[in-house]
Computed example of a mutant assay.
Amino acid sequence: MAPTVPLAVLALVALVAPGLGVAPPGCDYPAHRWCSSRDAAAACQVQSRCPSLPRPAAAPVQLSLYYESLCPACRQFLVLKLFPTWLLLPAEMLNITLVPYGNAQERNVSGKWDFRCQHGPEECLGNMMEACLMHEAQNFSTYFPVIFCLESGSSVTKNLEACLQIYAPELDSGRVTACVQGDTGMALMHHNAQATEALQPPHQYVPWITVNGPCVPPQKHTDELQAQAEASLLGLVCQLYEGEKPEVCGGSKAPKLPSGCSR
């Protein structure tokens, strides 16, 4: 008696096999395995006929914020736009990089870096505190709520202890202070200065936002993207993300995508 072939396999062969089951060039899989994996489907040119295949993981939208700790517009964007958007979206949708420096200037004085900030020495201190906080905490979900607390409070430079107690009690404020007062803080600010000066196009104001995602090369800034981020950051990220979107994206205002992008 001939072996029995399951009906499901026969149906699959009929569904996916072009030319009565003849494998296309480069396909080394039997017809009943063409939909067994993404590699097999690609080799046998049947991706569109394999609806059960898992979708590939989508890359997160990358957003970098170049800012100053005491800049009113920077604080407004971080507190009212960036932080709420981060809270609303799944972690895999959005990666954020914070670069506190902005319109500051640095110079080398007798082998040591000296910084001059747009809003004075207090802002330089705030920039370095936040840079050191990131360095010591490492984990974004640990330090971002603390920075939000600092930027939304009455004083960026005087509320570190209180903000740490609320949002990151496991982090010792003494470590952050030691960083600020030592060579590490200077090195971190020098790094931020270099990153800011390397921007293309050069930054002209703060906050300065760069984004990358589909149709948007890495670390791109345009007036259009800046305006969209400031008007509806949630809507922009939802539009740029290529993966499955959460329910919150359904109610967000969808901005016009950058030129050359489509959905």
Results as ranks from 00 to 15, higher is better:
39 D>S: 11
43 A>Q: 12
44 C>S: 07
45 Q>V: 08
45 Q>S: 14
45 Q>P: 02
45 Q>F: 04
45 Q>C: 03
45 Q>M: 11
46 V>P: 00
46 V>N: 03
46 V>C: 02
47 Q>E: 13
48 S>R: 00
48 S>T: 04
48 S>N: 01
48 S>A: 07
48 S>K: 02
49 R>V: 00
50 C>G: 02
50 C>Q: 07
51 P>M: 06
52 S>L: 10
52 S>G: 08
52 S>I: 01
53 L>Y: 04
53 L>R: 06
53 L>M: 09
54 P>H: 09
54 P>E: 05
54 P>Q: 05
54 P>D: 05
55 R>Y: 01
55 R>S: 03
57 A>T: 11
57 A>L: 06
58 A>D: 05
58 A>Q: 10
58 A>K: 11
58 A>F: 03
58 A>S: 12
59 A>F: 02
60 P>D: 02
61 V>S: 03
61 V>A: 01
62 Q>A: 07
62 Q>W: 11
63 L>N: 00
64 S>F: 03
64 S>M: 08
64 S>Y: 01
64 S>D: 10
65 L>E: 08
65 L>S: 04
65 L>K: 04
66 Y>R: 05
66 Y>N: 11
66 Y>W: 12
67 Y>R: 04
67 Y>A: 10
68 E>S: 04
68 E>R: 02
68 E>H: 04
68 E>W: 08
68 E>F: 07
69 S>V: 01
70 L>C: 01
70 L>A: 06
70 L>Q: 12
71 C>G: 08
71 C>Q: 07
71 C>L: 09
71 C>K: 09
72 P>H: 07
73 A>G: 07
73 A>Y: 14
73 A>H: 11
74 C>I: 08
74 C>A: 12
75 R>K: 15
76 Q>C: 01
76 Q>A: 14
77 F>V: 11
77 F>D: 07
77 F>S: 12
78 L>H: 14
78 L>F: 15
79 V>E: 08
80 L>M: 13
80 L>K: 14
81 K>C: 01
81 K>T: 05
81 K>D: 14
81 K>A: 07
81 K>W: 12
81 K>G: 00
83 F>T: 14
85 T>H: 08
86 W>E: 00
87 L>P: 00
87 L>Y: 05
88 L>P: 06
88 L>V: 09
89 L>Q: 12
89 L>F: 15
89 L>G: 13
89 L>T: 15
89 L>P: 11
90 P>N: 10
90 P>I: 14
90 P>Y: 12
91 A>S: 12
91 A>G: 08
91 A>N: 12
92 E>Y: 05
92 E>F: 07
93 M>V: 14
94 L>Q: 02
94 L>C: 06
95 N>D: 15
95 N>P: 00
